Simulated assay, not measured.
Amino acid sequence: MHIKPVSVQLGEVELEEDLSDMQMNDLRNWLSENGFELLDDRKMVLVERVKNLIIEIIHGADRIDLTIKLSYLIQQKLSIDYNYVSSLFSNIEGITIEQYIILQRIERAKEFLEYNELTLSEIAYKLGYSSVQYLSTQFKKATGFTPSHFKNIKENARRPLDQL
């Protein structure tokens, strides 16, 4: 399409020059055909930036820094009032930022459980939970299973190669 990006990051592309209406329409169609969506509404873009930041924090770090509240971090990184972002996020996504953070933390916990390389205490620590019990409570609330039961289900779902 002869569109030259300056930078490409998770959920964001910065272009060398503005696109004409025709180019924008062609890009929108191409993205749609390939399972993507062009977000050119400023509010939607802001919500996507919040989601990407949360994913980066939770899935990218070895351990969440408990001394910094994620609400403060979001406000600082995006240079926008947290109350506004929180209200906008809830209206667009149908859940609060806090609920989204919990869902991301639980997904990360599932990954750790599936890899089976860390104890539950280590997982709780890495994800910034104050205790294993708190992680277990949130995990069960979100998935319907305790972390231990989830881990056992995953192990029981797989069959050793010599038993195939």
Rank of each mutant, 00 (worst) to 15 (best):
T96D: 09
D41T: 00
Y72V: 14
L66Y: 02
V13H: 03
K141W: 08
E93F: 01
S86R: 12
Y100N: 04
L15E: 07
N152Q: 05
K69I: 11
I97A: 05
E17M: 10
N29E: 12
L15P: 05
H59L: 13
S86P: 01
Y115M: 13
L66G: 15
H59D: 13
D41W: 02
R108I: 04
R49N: 06
D62L: 12
V8N: 04
E17T: 08
R105Y: 00
Q23V: 06
R108N: 08
H2E: 14
N116L: 06
I68W: 12
I123A: 03
S20Y: 00
E107L: 09
E33Y: 07
I54W: 03
I101D: 05
F112G: 05
L70I: 13
Y125N: 10
E33C: 02
L135S: 01
E37P: 03
M44Q: 14
N83E: 12
S121H: 04
I55Q: 10
T119K: 04
D162N: 14
D65R: 11
I74Y: 00
S20A: 01
I123W: 02
Y84G: 10
D62G: 15
Q23K: 09
V13I: 15
K140Y: 02
L135M: 11
Q76C: 08
K126C: 13
F145C: 04
M1N: 07
K77S: 13
R49M: 11
S20W: 01
N52G: 05
E122F: 03
N52Q: 14
F145L: 12
V45F: 06
I92R: 07
L46W: 05
V13C: 05
E48A: 14
N52K: 09
P147M: 06
I102R: 08
I95V: 10
S79M: 13
F139S: 00
N29R: 09
G144F: 00
L53A: 01
V45C: 11
A61E: 10
M22S: 14
D18R: 13
E122R: 09
